[in-house]
Amino acid sequence: MVMIRYLYRHFAYLLISFILSSVIIFVLVDMLPGSPAEVILGTQASKASLAALNAKLGFDHPPYWQYWHWITGLFTLHWGNSYVSGQSLGSEIASSAAVTFPLVAMAMLFAFVIASILAVAGGLSHRTKLGTALLAVSQIGISVPSFVAAMFLIVLIALKLNLLPATGFPGWSSSVGGSLKSLILPSLSLAIAEGCFLSRYIRTALIDVLNSNYYRSALAKGLTPPGALWRHGRRNIAVEVLTVFGMQVIALIVGAVIVESVFSLPGMGTLLITAINNRDLSLLRDICLMLVGIVLAMNFLVDLAYHAIDPRVFDYA
């Protein structure tokens, strides 16, 4: 019962946040001084040509009409065409999402693997020279921007060792294996910093469990260390992992935007940059709303998972 009420309420928050976000984006993209036609044609263009373009694109209508037109169009899947490239916005965004989503998912997977290795090794060697060294490694990993890690990975693994493709993306329809291969380096460069960051939290959680009374009691009643960790430590550590993952989802998506431009992957980040360079306002507001929507939805899911793992949180919800 509590779970269902909780779900309803948070779903309502999600919807309201999404609608408010769309208003914010609309205001920033469409309402700030300077008409969209001016943005496209430049401020030197004649009044007549500006008015003509505004009318052609529907920017001469009152703002509430434009907003309504945009939102209803989004929900009825009439996304229209870009007025710069003439491409269908819906298909452009869908095909870019087909690159960015797998990229972020792979990055999460790699990050989790890196974090687990670093954390378990670091947690077990806590207060030894090795443990300190591992802490230093994770600290350095956090300090290097992912796009720089990307450049070094390209040089080392793609160009010197020739193991994986350096840049570009063959497309899912032409080669699934090739596409996956070309996502490995980008997701790895995202995962290095993310994994190092995550590992610090898992390590602390692990050490907390190892020092806890319940873990000692579990050993005393005859469980082996791995068994005790699994039965009594699992959930406590999972809560930490999820919390940090929830915090880091936005970071991963933003990181993906930048890393995509290093690897020239045709994902949402590249599309975003294209939209800015072409001053393609309709594409820009659609893709911004998509990104915000993804962030909101991911936070919602993390919240649910978090509460599923740690039911105590309901007490405060």
Partner: peptide, 16 residues
């Protein structure tokens, strides 16, 4: 709500 707007998006929206 503001949590869903990372610096990158704000920068994009303003720079355009």
């Amino acid at each position: 709500l503001l949590l869903a707007f990372p610096a990158l998006l704000i920068a994009t929206l303003v720079s355009v």
